[in-house]
Simulated scan of single mutants.
Amino acid sequence: MTTTNSVPFWQEKSLEEMSRVEWESICDGCAKCCLHKLIDDDAQDEVIDTTHMNDQEELHFTSVACRYLNDKKCECTVYKQRTQLVPSCIQLTQDNLEQVFYMPTSCSYRRLQEGRGLPSWHPLLNKGKKSAMHKAGMSVRGKIIFDDMITEEEFEDYIVVWPLKDLD
């Protein structure tokens, strides 16, 4: 998808200006957004799962993924119903870009919002294929456990830093 002057749309348009098709194609399909995130509140000395953060809190990623994730394809198996089935699922849209901080630093939406461009492994730069992303280790493939396999109290035991890895 390029514009008439051969400049890729993601270099010419802001996220807010993109069509729905363009917006959806920005998703790199890594599935890191499907990982449960915990917020560490130093003031309360506890880790909680929540949908908002205060200034004194810190976001942690876990290797615990939503039960609806196909971990081979890195795709949601209930994409259209995901927010009904999982109310805490963050559906990043053009209207709530302020929530981009919940996405890992490698997230293509976050990268574009921060002015960093798409990474070399992004499917839009690799003939629509996810293979470069998987090869670079940027997806969740082979790294997760599902949330229906453990209790919510155990999520804290699965805090990881690999979702924050970013390349180029």
Rank of each mutant, 00 (worst) to 15 (best):
M1K: 10
M1V: 08
M1Q: 13
T4S: 13
F9Y: 10
E12M: 15
K13Y: 09
E16V: 12
E16P: 02
S19W: 09
V21F: 14
V21Y: 09
E22L: 05
W23N: 02
W23S: 01
W23D: 03
W23L: 04
E24G: 09
E24C: 07
I26P: 00
C27G: 00
C27Y: 02
G29P: 02
G29R: 01
I39Y: 03
D42Y: 09
D45I: 07
D45Q: 12
D49T: 11
D49M: 15
D49E: 14
T51H: 08
N54Y: 07
Q56L: 15
E57N: 05
E58K: 14
F61P: 01
V64F: 04
C66D: 03
L69V: 04
K72P: 01
V78H: 02
Q81T: 07
T83D: 13
Q91D: 15
Q91E: 11
L92N: 00
T93N: 05
D95S: 15
V100Q: 10
Y102W: 07
P104Y: 01
T105H: 04
S106D: 05
Y109V: 03
R110L: 05
R111Y: 05
R111M: 07
R111C: 06
Q113A: 13
E114N: 15
R116M: 09
L118Q: 03
L118V: 06
W121G: 00
H122M: 11
H122I: 05
H122S: 02
K127N: 13
A132F: 06
H134Y: 06
H134G: 02
H134N: 12
M138G: 01
G142A: 05
K143W: 03
K143I: 07
I144N: 00
I144E: 01
F146I: 01
F146S: 00
D147C: 09
D147E: 14
M149N: 13
M149T: 10
E152H: 12
E154T: 10
F155E: 00
E156Y: 12
Y158L: 04
Y158V: 01
V161K: 14
K165Y: 14
